[in-house]
């Protein structure tokens, strides 16, 4: 530190104590660069550069669509973070089961009673469900069933959930291209339709839940075979509902009707006949002069764990595959 610098430090302090005027801009700025308290103010060039970088990224990705130039970066990031997420989810799994240990005998008994009642109700529902009868009547059941029989299911576990703050309802599962997965495959669990695969990495895949506001599923009402489209609302939890918009506007779905997938050509992205949910309420919109039904999905999206990905029968996979006849391969 030279004598000049020693002199400068108190001078600078003096300057700062006076109100820093605009007139002394250049000298002031030079000292400010080294002043300890000036770290609060970032250089304008940095601010501009970072904001422009973000804007460029958004533009690139927004207009890129599915062939977005960001996609390779996403894939690379997925390859990097996928295994870490799988590891973290595996490590935390024993701890998430802890609350179950403290459940009392009585509460379990209550659960059993509830489940038995639900079972009976469901059995009754199955016996009376007109869906299968309708399908047979229309000679469609056979082909649909044959289609369905050609599929096998790759089991996987949910290892990561996108935060609601991001407003898109997506999850990571711990099976990827090595397990035979590809984009646009149907994801189900034992309750019904979960979603479809958006993109895969070697060890993980990203699944778009049907609750996502961008998700559209072709659906059919089991009772009268009417077709429509299911739109997600982007909300998880208790409010997790789907809106059903029927193609035939004159049809009024009944409360309690079962909604199943309509199925796409070649089984991608959705195979047909997967139960989605049931109609809880119907309301008509005067403005759009159409009927909208609210569907409660069968799947509890707040507690997703084991899911299955529908793959063609005989697909190669790095894990056991559940074949259509229930056998494990």
């Amino acid at each position: 530190m030279g004598p000049l610098d020693r002199l400068r430090t108190p001078l600078a302090r003096l300057d700062r104590e006076r109100r820093p005027g605009r007139g002394r801009g250049a000298r002031e700025r030079r000292w400010r660069l080294n002043g300890p308290e000036d770290r609060g103010k970032p250089p304008r060039s940095l601010v501009v550069a970072l904001v422009l970088a973000c804007a460029a990224l958004i533009t690139l990705d927004y207009h890129g669509g599915t062939g977005s130039p960001i996609e390779p970066a996403r894939r690379a990031m997925g390859e990097l973070f996928g295994p870490v997420e799988v590891g973290a989810a595996t490590a935390i799994r024993p701890f998430t089961a802890v609350p179950d240990w403290f459940r009392t005998h009585d509460s379990m008994r209550d659960d059993i009673d509830g489940l038995e009642a639900e079972n009976a109700r469901l059995r009754q529902q199955v016996h009376t469900a007109p869906y299968d009868r309708n399908k047979l009547a229309e000679y469609e059941g056979l082909t649909a069933a044959a289609d369905t029989l050609n599929y096998a299911v790759v089991p996987a576990r949910v290892v990561g959930l996108g935060p609601s703050q991001s407003f898109s309802r997506t999850v990571t599962i711990d099976a990827g291209s090595r397990a035979g997965l590809q984009p646009d495959m149907t994801v189900i669990n034992n309750d019904g339709l979960v979603g479809r695969i958006l993109r895969v990495t070697g060890t993980t895949a990203t699944v778009l839940l049907i609750l996502d506001a961008d998700s559209v599923v072709g659906a059919r009402i089991g009772n009268d075979m009417k077709v429509g489209f299911l739109h997600g609302r982007g909300v998880l939890g208790r409010e997790g509902r789907l809106d059903l918009e029927l193609v035939d506007q004159s049809v009024v779905p009944a409360k309690g009707d079962v909604v199943v997938t309509w199925g796409s050509d070649g089984g991608a992205p959705y195979v047909s006949g997967i139960p989605v949910g049931r109609v809880t309420s119907v309301f008509s919109s005067l403005r759009e002069s159409s009927q909208r039904a609210v569907i409660q999905p069968y799947v509890d999206f707040g507690a997703l764990d084991v899911v299955g990905v529908v793959v063609p029968s005989g697909a190669t996979s790095d894990r056991a595959v559940i074949e259509a006849d229930g056998s494990l391969r």
Binding site: I58, D61, A73, R74, G82, V171
Partner: peptide, 10 residues
């Protein structure tokens, strides 16, 4: 970019 993000990057 890290999975399961699916919104517009940036």
């Amino acid at each position: 970019l890290a999975p399961p993000a699916d919104h517009v990057a940036g």
